[in-house]
Amino acid sequence: MPLQRFTRVYGIQDAKIAPLTADPASGTPTYGALIDVPGIKSFEVSGDIEVKTLRGDNGKLATNATISNIQVQVTHAKVSLDVLAAIVGGTVTDSGTTPAQKTAWDLTKDTATFPPFKLEGVTPANGVDLIGGDYHTVLHKLTLSSFPDLGFAEEDFRIASFTADADPLLSNGKWISAVINETAVAIS
């Protein structure tokens, strides 16, 4: 018997991004290594629908609707230089020796490329109706739509966030996938 096609969704345990390295129109998309979004707090997907109404004979004759945008808003508790490089561009470099090591993300006008990336989030095991199962949401091709929220907060933790817009993959047309697993699986 197949799994039920509905579930409650409780919590988010993990989220990872992967740079989209190829999306051939007649092939298979390929992605770079997974990068953890540290301290994931929320992963909210929304969309816009454009509706056209045909009127005539003094009345409504037809309605047509199309998706005009799918967007994701992500908040996370820790800043990751690797995530910044993957979604904005720039380079991350490590230098020095203990006790003076440092790692730096540098963005220049030439390296601010806003490369496409995949984002996947998952509930904890048992975060769904199925005991031991989980729920994944995958956005297959995203591009940052506003600069990430960074900075500091007086006498408080600063929460990082970013917003990205989805495009369908050229290779298979996928925008978003929602998957219910009977047994929890790691992001891949």
Rank of each mutant, 00 (worst) to 15 (best):
Y31E: 05
E182G: 08
K60T: 15
S80D: 02
T98G: 11
K16L: 05
L169K: 07
V128L: 05
G11C: 11
L119E: 03
V122M: 01
F157D: 12
A33H: 12
G133T: 02
A33K: 14
G151I: 10
A85S: 09
V128D: 06
L61T: 09
T63Y: 03
D36Q: 10
F157Y: 11
S171M: 10
I67Y: 00
S46L: 06
N58A: 08
K102A: 13
L150V: 12
Y31H: 05
R158C: 07
V51G: 03
V185G: 00
A65M: 08
A100K: 15
A186K: 07
V88Q: 09
P148H: 03
I187A: 03
T53L: 07
I187E: 03
P24H: 11
V92R: 06
D106G: 05
A166K: 03
T91L: 00
E44D: 14
R55G: 09
S161H: 06
T111K: 15
Q71C: 04
G132Q: 11
Q73T: 15
P2F: 10
G173V: 07
A186V: 10
D94E: 14
A62Y: 10
I17P: 01
D94H: 11
A85E: 12
V88H: 04
D82V: 08
L150N: 04
P99E: 09
A112W: 05
P99V: 09
T123G: 02
T28P: 02
F117N: 02
G47Q: 10
D156M: 14
N69Y: 01
A18Q: 15
F157A: 15
H76G: 00
S42F: 01
I70N: 03
S68I: 03
Y10E: 12
T183R: 13
G11R: 10
I35V: 14
S188M: 06
D106V: 15
V74I: 14
A153P: 03
A22K: 15
S145E: 07
G47L: 06
V138A: 09
Q4R: 12
S68F: 00
L130I: 11
P168H: 06
T97N: 14
S146N: 13
T30Y: 08
T123N: 02
G27Y: 04
N172F: 08
G132L: 11
R5G: 10
V45N: 00
P124R: 09
E154R: 12
A18H: 05
V83C: 05
F6E: 13
D149S: 14
F147R: 09
I131M: 08
P99T: 07
H76E: 04
F117C: 00
T123Y: 00
A100V: 11
V9D: 04
V185R: 09
T93C: 02
N181S: 07
L34A: 12
I87Y: 00
T163F: 01
H136D: 02
T93Y: 05
F114I: 12
I35L: 10
V122E: 03
F152N: 13
D167R: 12
D14N: 15
K52W: 05
A184W: 08
G96F: 06
